[in-house]
Design a protein around this nucleic acid. Structure first.
Lengths: 221, 221
DNA sequence: AGTCGGTTCGAACGTTCGTTCGGATTCTAG
DNA sequence: CTAGAATCCGAACGAACGTTCGAACCGACT
C-alpha cells in the first residue's frame, strides 16, 4: 500500500502532535504549538484533521490498531498459556518502548476524548484488556494450584506494571526493552503462578523486530 | 490544633477542587468550574489561594505530607524487612482508597506544576520512592537467593501496580482495600522474593484505621 | 454607635484558545 | 499552456481562560 503525499504529511503531523501531547499533555497543548512544531500554518492543519480532538483520536486509534494487529499476528500459532503471556508482555512493552510518546498519550489521555471517539477507543481497550484477562485465566486453569490471586486484580496489576513505565523508563538507557520485559514477566509470573521456571525461550526473535515496531509507516520526513 | 474558619473553607475548596481535577483533569478544569461547585464567587476563590496552580500544589503537598507522616509513624517500630514492605503497601493503598480523588491528582497531574512548586513536590516524591527502594533492598538482602530482579524495575513495577488502581478500583465496591492490598502484596512478593509464606499478620489493626485516613481535617461542611 | 480586619462578589481586564473564511499559490492532467 | 483540484495561509471570529479591582458586606470588639 503506497502512502499518498497527503497521508504522509498527516502522519508527520500526528507524530509531532503525539510528541507534544506527551510532553505537556493534550489539554495544555494548543493548535498553535503544533503549528509551530510542524511548520504548518494554523489554518493549514485543518486540511488534515477536522479538529484538535480528532488528532488525539487518530493517534490513539492508530496506536491501538497496530498493537492489536501485531499481537494477534504473533499470538496466532502459540498454544501454551504461559508462552502466550510472555508474548503478550513482550509485545506490549516492545511496542511501548518503540512508541513512547504515542503510548504515553494512549495511557495518560484515555479520558480526554468525548462522545463517539471516546467510545470507539474505549471499546478497543476493553477487548485488549479482556484478551489479557483470558490469557491469565488460561494460565491459572493450566495449573493445579488453587488460584490465590483475584483475576481482576492480577489483570490490572499487570497493566499497571507495564503502563507505568512512561513515568520512568528511558528506551535509550542502559536497560534494554527485552531485559525489562524479562524482569517484569518474572516478577509477575512469580507472584501469579508460583513455581514456574523462567525460560527465556523464543524471545530472541521478538527482540530483532523491535526496530520495525513504529506506529507510523516508514518515512524519513 | 483548632482549624480556623478560614482554614476550614480553604480545605473545603481544596477538597472540591481535587474532586473536579480528578474528574476532568487539571488543565481542563477552569476556576469557574471550581467557583460553581463550591458556591464561592470567582473572585472569592482568590481570597484563599494565590492562583489555580497553588490549588493543585496544596492538594498534592497535603496529600504527600499525610502519606509520609502516617507511613513513618507506622514504620517506626517494625524491623523485619518483609513486614516493612507489607506495611508500606497496605499504607499506600489504604490511603489511596480513602482519598481517591486526591491521590489520582497526585499520580496523574505530577507534571502539571511548574517551577518551585514542581521541585518541591518532586523532592518529596523522590524521597518516598527511595524509601520504597530501600525497603526492597533490605528484603533482597535478607534472602540468601541471588537477586534475579532488577531493583529499579521492581520499585517502579510496585508503584505501577499500586498507582494504577485509580483507573479501575472502586473503594465502594465488593473488593475491600485490605483484600486488594493482600492480593497485590502476594503478587509482588511472589515474584520479587519467591518462597516467602503469605502471613496476614498485623494487618487487622491497619484495617481499622482506614476511616481516619482522610487527608482533610474532620469537617462535615 | 462606630470602627476595623476579614470576607465576598459583580464586572471587567488582557490574553489565548479552537476554528473559520476567502483568497493566494502550487500541483497535476489533458 | 491551461483548467481545475489540491494545498496553503494571513487575518480574523467569538468564546473562554486566569486574574484583578474597587466597592460592598459582615461580625466582633471598644
Amino acid at each position: 500500500m503506497q502512502a499518498s503525499r497527503h497521508d504522509q504529511k498527516l502522519e508527520f503531523i500526528l507524530r509531532t502532535a503525539a510528541r507534544i501531547f506527551a510532553e505537556k499533555s493534550y489539554h495544555s497543548t494548543s493548535m498553535r504549538d503544533i503549528s509551530r512544531a510542524t511548520n504548518v500554518s494554523l489554518a493549514g492543519l485543518y486540511h488534515y484533521c477536522r479538529s484538535k480532538e480528532e488528532l488525539l483520536f487518530l493517534i490513539q486509534d492508530n496506536c491501538f490498531g497496530r498493537v492489536l494487529e501485531r499481537l494477534e499476528q504473533q499470538l496466532g500459532e502459540v498454544k501454551d498459556p504461559v508462552a502466550k503471556l510472555r508474548l503478550f508482555i513482550e509485545n506490549h512493552l516492545s511496542f511501548f518502548a518503540a512508541n513512547m510518546a504515542e503510548m504515553k498519550v494512549l495511557s495518560h489521555e484515555s479520558e480526554s476524548l468525548r462522545g463517539d471517539l471516546h467510545v470507539h477507543v474505549s471499546t478497543r481497550k476493553d477487548s485488549y484488556t479482556k484478551l489479557a484477562r483470558k490469557i491469565l485465566q488460561e494460565v491459572q486453569d493450566s495449573r493445579e494450584h488453587q488460584q490465590p490471586v483475584d483475576l481482576t486484580v492480577a489483570t490490572y496489576a499487570l497493566f499497571g506494571m507495564m503502563n507505568w513505565i512512561y513515568n520512568w523508563y528511558d528506551p535509550q538507557g542502559k536497560l534494554k526493552v527485552h531485559d525489562l520485559a524479562q524482569h517484569l514477566t518474572q516478577l509477575f509470573l512469580g507472584g501469579f503462578a508460583p513455581g514456574l521456571l523462567v525460560e527465556p525461550a523464543g524471545s530472541t526473535m521478538l527482540a530483532q523486530q523491535v526496530e520495525n515496531l513504529s506506529i507510523w509507516r516508514g518515512t524519513t520526513t
